[in-house]
Amino acid sequence: MKTFKILVIIGFFATAAISCSPERAAIVENKPGVQLWGENCMRCHNTPSPADFNDTDWTTIEMHMKIRANLTTYESKKIFEFIKSAN
């Protein structure tokens, strides 16, 4: 049991270190807005068409969803730039 606990703790810190690595951050930063839109939004709800709302509404939705979905400023900027370009 003690060995198992040690392995769990090592595993936790190893995965946390990988998650925070510059390589991982670079992968996310290189994704286009349309990909971030598909990956992040559909985890919780169906994705509306960009044409369902105008730019003003999308700006309000951006502020709301940035908080609700824990999006970084970079992610939300890319996602909503894509949506506004497509509506």
Partner: peptide, 9 residues
């Protein structure tokens, strides 16, 4: 919560 993959899946 922990999202282990970069595609947030």
């Amino acid at each position: 919560g922990y999202l282990p993959f970069t595609d947030s899946s």
